[in-house]
């Protein structure tokens, strides 16, 4: 769990530099990534299904990103993009492709379905938080 959080922290920071984020925003993005990784690992360890843990991690990530974006007066994508990548189910995608290559269609399809639902959960988390943020913006500008 600690290992997952620490690895997410480093990976998110590395991506922040790859995407030319500057200054202390790199640190903020890394901390958001770390917390998202921690939530995912915690949920997994407590026997929650992969899809639901992915959704919880995604909600954490995009909620924190929206809050930090307000606080630092910066576009929210800066934080979401960097912190999202450690959550992408790349491993599942690879194993499904490998199984399909070995003509093991049943296993390949099963993993692929799992990957698709995980990506769906990830996207749904961002959609929920973005919608709340857009609604709040529209409400503020109407006043």
């Amino acid at each position: 769990m600690i290992q997952a959080a620490l690895a997410s922290f480093i990976a998110t920071g590395a991506f922040a530099i790859l995407f030319t984020v500057r200054g202390r925003k790199i640190l903020v993005a890394s901390i958001i990534g770390m917390l998202a990784g921690f939530v995912f690992a915690l949920a997994q360890e407590n026997g929650i299904s992969v899809v639901v843990s992915q959704f919880l991690a995604s909600i954490t990530l995009s909620g924190l990103s929206e809050i930090c974006a307000r606080k630092f007066k910066t576009p929210v994508t800066i934080f979401i993009v960097c912190a999202l990548i450690p959550l992408v189910p790349g491993g599942g995608m690879y194993f499904s492709m490998k199984a399909l290559m070995e003509s093991n269609t049943a296993l390949g399809n099963a993993i692929l379905l799992d990957v698709l639902s995980q990506s769906g959960a990830l996207v749904l988390g961002i959609v929920v938080m973005s919608t709340i943020s857009f609604m709040q913006r529209a409400y503020m500008s109407r006043r």
């Binding site: 990976a11 991506f15 995407f19 994508t77 979401i80 993009v81 960097c82 999202l84 990548i85 450690p86 992408v88 790349g90 491993g91 690879y94 194993f95 490998k98 996207v123 961002i126 959609v127 973005s130 919608t131 857009f134």
Partner: peptide, 25 residues
């Protein structure tokens, strides 16, 4: 397997995914 997955993560289009979601919202 682990080495391949971890280096392929560098090619994952994270920005495009995020933008696709936010554009549709």
């Amino acid at each position: 397997d682990i080495v391949i997955i971890s280096m392929l993560m560098l090619l994952v289009p994270g920005l495009v995914i995020t933008n696709a979601v936010r554009d549709s919202v």
